[in-house]
Write a protein that binds this DNA or RNA. Structure first.
Length: 315
DNA sequence: ATGTGTTCCTGTCCGC
DNA sequence: TGCGGACAGGAACACA
């Protein structure tokens, strides 16, 4: 179950950015929160970097106290006073298989539980691992969580919970775009005097943490700003529109993920790769979705990455 | 210090 | 039908 291959690449658009990670967290919660990791199976030495020493042993028996997100990182706080840091990279996914034959409570968009009935392999246990299944958690309650990552750009590490934000992967991250410290004054100060394109600036995780290539295109379209515009040459009034544009795009995507989670999970244990309709990403040649604009979306390459925008209404 | 290019990796898609 | 190559992207890293 849950093994239909989500496409990646040009047509795929299923790359985990902040909203996808948020959706993954919500999907993991019913199976993991306040439950023990009964067994951890680590099937290779590492992904992008080596796993920490004795990772499987350090995880086994631990109870999950909190599931948190920082930027695109999943943080799993354990009662061993260590925190498991997970990054999904570009193709990483967390698969949740309910306890064979047992219902698994499913948290819906409003936190109202539904019920997901396990598939019919009751008594047969979980099926064996498949290709690119790198780490497997068997949870108290019988659910199995599988980290699958074809391209192995993902990462896992363990850090002391008390100092988790001092970890090298987290220490230099900018503010959360949905948090209180991200506002017009902050963004203005960070863009001030910068000569790089705004597209590149918004991808810089030290400036704002959690945006990726897809949502940056969406954000800039919403704010009517060209991806080519120099970061330091955006009028302050337009920087002000950028902040709510970022928040709105992310919040709408999270809402979309949350609502699709319910439907998705009924046929597919795969989390965080929900259908989402982008306004400009991947839509080169199509009409600009802005009502009063009759422009056409174009694709350009900046720093080796695709940007999609409307040259008519984005300046 | 700042900006750009390279690198890791595999699945998918395209043209021949 | 098969094969080679381009392409996708997160983020550390090397380099101008």
């Amino acid at each position: 179950m849950g093994r239909d291959n989500a496409p990646t690449g040009p047509k795929g658009c299923y790359v985990p950015e902040l909203p996808e990670v948020e959706t993954v967290l919500r999907g993991l919660a019913p199976a993991m929160l306040n439950r023990r990791i009964l067994h951890a199976q680590v099937r290779r030495d590492g992904l992008r970097w080596p796993f920490p020493p004795r990772m499987a042993e350090r995880l086994a028996g631990c109870r999950v106290l909190h599931l948190r997100r920082r930027s695109k990182y999943i943080l799993i706080d354990l009662d061993s006073d260590e925190t498991l840091i997970i990054h999904l990279g570009m193709s990483g996914r967390m698969l949740v298989a309910p306890a064979p034959g047992a219902p698994l409570p499913l948290v819906g968009r409003d936190g109202v539980g539904g019920t997901l009935v396990g598939n019919d392999d009751a008594g047969g246990g979980h099926p064996g691992p498949e290709k690119h299944d790198h780490v497997i958690f068997d949870m108290e309650g019988g659910a199995r969580i599988t980290f699958n990552d074809a391209r192995r750009f993902g990462a896992m590490d363990l850090a002391p919970s008390a100092d988790v934000f001092a970890h090298r992967l987290l220490a230099n991250l900018g503010p959360e775009p949905l948090g209180n410290h991200f506002d017009e004054a902050y963004l203005t100060s960070r863009l001030q005097g910068r000569n790089l394109p705004i597209k590149s600036a918004l991808l810089d995780q030290r400036i704002v943490a959690g945006l990726g290539n897809i949502y940056v295109s969406e954000v800039l379209h919403r704010a009517s700003i060209s991806p080519k515009r120099k970061a330091g040459r955006i009028a302050s009034a337009r920087v002000a529109t950028l902040v709510p544009a970022i928040r709105d795009v992310l919040n709408e995507a999270i809402a979309s993920g949350g609502s699709s989670l319910r439907d998705h999970r009924q046929t597919n244990g795969e989390l965080g790769y929900f259908q989402h309709n982008f306004r400009v990403y991947g839509r080169q040649g199509q009409p600009c979705p802005t009502a009063s604009c009759n422009g056409k979306i174009v694709r350009i390459v900046q720093s080796g990455r695709s940007s999609f925008y409307c040259p008519k209404c984005q300046r």
